[in-house]
Design a protein around this nucleic acid. Structure first.
Length: 262
DNA sequence: ATGGCTAATGATATTAGA
């Protein structure tokens, strides 16, 4: 069995104890983290990378400052690391929102899509173009390995992925252009494996910190795993760790876990 | 239509998140 987990941790400094405990308990072979919110230098300093290495992981991190930040942890090899998009990346496309590596024969991606803020905000346009850059990077990936494109897409692919679609009609995360940007990956042949294994309604990965949201399961499914058929065919189970989200000092995102047969 | 919270910052209000 090969276990791959993706998790927006919402600051590694605020979450380090929980992340280490979660990794020790669930032992994913590959863990893709988002929103570490720290620099490579901090991630390499005492108390971070060394703690993961103590659990048997190799580590690759990509972070410039206290925003964004993505990482790959692997116990099944970690080679051909690509930080950011290939080629020239002028601001804001240089933000630390994507890292890819080949682990256990799978091209894994830890991605943190721009939020978009508001539909009339320039950041929303950045989000759409960012997705096109990501699509081009995946399409041109030279590794030849099948993909597991995972992370925080900041898009709910359908109304089924939102607790209250009417409420989100005029917001980011649900607009047709954002959904088209995500659909472009399925056009590449990638499969939303969470939906294959969890087709029912009310399956979410993020809940606001505001009171009652998690308790009432008023959330969004925005953390996705889009996999090549060669990976998707091996997936036996997809599960979302709501228990982790329910804990004290938790991230607002739950880990999404893929279990694959060998 | 609205509010509610959390994380980081040369911070004590602001930006950002989603």
């Amino acid at each position: 069995m090969l276990r791959i987990a993706t998790w927006n941790v919402n600051s590694i400094r605020a979450r380090q104890a929980r992340v280490l405990a979660w990794l020790a308990e669930h032992r994913p072979d590959v863990a893709l983290l988002q929103e570490t919110k720290c620099t490579d230098a901090l991630f390499a300093s005492d108390g971070f990378t060394d703690e993961y290495e103590a659990l048997g992981y190799e580590v690759a991190h990509h972070g410039h400052d206290h925003w964004n930040g993505v990482a790959v942890l692997s116990r099944v090899g970690l080679v051909d690391v690509q930080r950011g998009f290939p080629g020239t990346n002028r601001p804001p496309f240089d933000e630390a929102r994507v890292i890819a590596a080949t682990c256990g024969g799978i091209r894994v991606w830890s991605i943190y899509a721009p939020n978009g803020r508001e539909l009339d905000d320039p950041h929303y346009l950045f989000k759409l173009v960012w997705f096109e850059r990501l699509r081009a990077a995946v399409a041109a990936d030279p590794s030849g390995a099948p993909h597991a494109l995972t992370g925080d897409f900041n898009v709910a692919p359908t109304d089924l992925d939102i607790y209250d679609p009417v409420r989100w009609r005029r917001r980011t995360h649900a607009s047709p252009p954002e959904r088209a940007a995500v659909a472009a990956f399925t056009d590449l042949g990638l499969i939303d494996v969470t939906r294959v294994h969890l087709p029912e309604p009310a399956v979410y990965t993020w809940w606001s910190y505001r009171p009652g949201k998690f308790e009432q399961n008023r959330g969004l499914r925005i953390d996705l795993a889009l996999c090549s058929p060669a990976v998707a065919d091996r997936v036996t189970r997809v599960w979302i760790d709501r228990d982790e989200r329910a804990g004290a000092v938790a991230s607002d995102h739950a880990p999404v876990v893929l279990d694959l047969r060998d």
